[in-house]
Design a protein around this nucleic acid. Structure first.
Lengths: 212, 212
DNA sequence: GAAGTTACCTAACGTTGTTAGGTATATGAC
DNA sequence: GTCATATACCTAACAACGTTAGGTAACTTC
């Protein structure tokens, strides 16, 4: 009877070893430059063994990311307790950048590659990415509702897109152009914080900017 | 004697037909989903014929983009005549977004893919992308020199990165997530213009924002 | 002990970008 | 006119990719 448990445990261990090797290679060389054959070789299996544990390469990638998406959702949840919507907006931005820096591969998979339909049927309501976006949009709506924003900012959806896009742009350019000689990159955390401040300053009504 | 000219003309025509077919397919399906075989089939040649005109797929892509990079540099040059650096900054942003919308494939190649070393040895001084960046940085330096900016913005390089990143983020997310159901995208030109305004508002000192 | 499941392997398929090597035609020198 | 050379293209193939069909050996269940 105990051997059944050993079998399932061994299966889980093999699965874990695949994920471990894949994660490291994906992060180091990018998911396009990492081949199924190379992952298999790393753990001394044949490529087909991987397909016994994962439907295909994309499924392996998606699985690798899911856990870390929860980290993003969790970080946003913590921020959710902050009462002032404008301060909350700033902290959401900070959490977002931290996530991107700590989980670069997952970030690229989620926000920098086109997908046809990677939504897991297992997740009951939308993927965590969508939930995080919904959270951002609601924060923007609350910020507008304070009446402290510039008169042209009356659309929560549009405001959310502006806030999201700007930080995303910094991260995305950093990923793609990090080694591009012409640009002298500053510390991304500091630039992101400054950008966030500039953006929020720009969002506020005149006479509300003393808070920064 | 005239037949030599005919030969070189025919060669140029074939080359042009390859580029024409490739451009259309790259734009429609993306450069990764477009195969050399498919391009060749489109103009009724074998794949090898393309290699007689272009070193490889990347060279074909790069060549296709070079002409349109000049469009970006040219658009920036026009803007260069505007005297007020802050107004110039806004117009550079507008020109940038226009370029991205009009040349989506080139935009993706230039700013959304990692390159190892695509710099053509033919171009004397840096590629047009770098020149455009240098132009942006100088505009930022001029904007700082007016003394009208927020005190925390004293680094032209960093300011340029903030301005560039924010617009890039909007474009990049739009490209990647256009069909993502959870986000109700607004008209990108309008959102970009608003974003630009918010950003410049945020950059300005208190008491300077009446201009917007 | 028979039947079925599991975990893995060998071998292969159909793509991809790219290249070696051949052919037919046109050019230029004598 | 003839002959070496260059051009423009083709056929056939290479290596590497993601993926799959089908086999094998160990284990579980009855």
């Amino acid at each position: 009877m105990g051997s059944t448990e050993r079998r399932t445990r061994e299966r889980a261990e093999t699965r874990e070893r695949i994920m471990e090797a894949a994660r490291e290679m994906f992060v180091r060389h990018g998911h396009e430059a990492t081949t199924m054959r190379a992952i298999a070789a790393e753990i001394e299996y044949t490529p087909t063994a991987i397909y016994h544990h994962f439907r295909n390469k994309e499924a392996l990638l998606t699985e690798l990311c899911t856990a870390d998406f929860r980290a993003l959702a969790g970080a946003f949840q913590k921020v959710g307790r902050i009462e002032d919507p404008i301060e909350r907006l700033r902290r959401v931005g900070k959490a977002y950048v931290t996530f991107a820096i700590d989980h670069p591969m997952q970030y690229q998979l989620l926000f920098m590659t086109r997908h046809v339909g990677h939504v897991e049927p297992g997740a009951a309501r939308g993927d965590p990415g969508e939930d995080a976006y919904a959270f951002l949009r609601e924060t923007c709506a609350a910020a507008i509702a304070t009446g402290r924003l510039w008169r042209k900012l009356d659309d929560a959806e549009e405001l959310a897109q502006i806030a999201w896009s700007s930080l995303h742009g910094l991260i995305a350019l950093h990923v793609v152009k990090r080694e591009h000689g012409a640009v002298e990159w500053r510390d991304i955390r500091k630039t992101a914080a400054l950008m966030n401040d500039v953006l929020i300053r720009g969002m506020l009504k005149r006479g509300q900017q003393e808070t920064i």
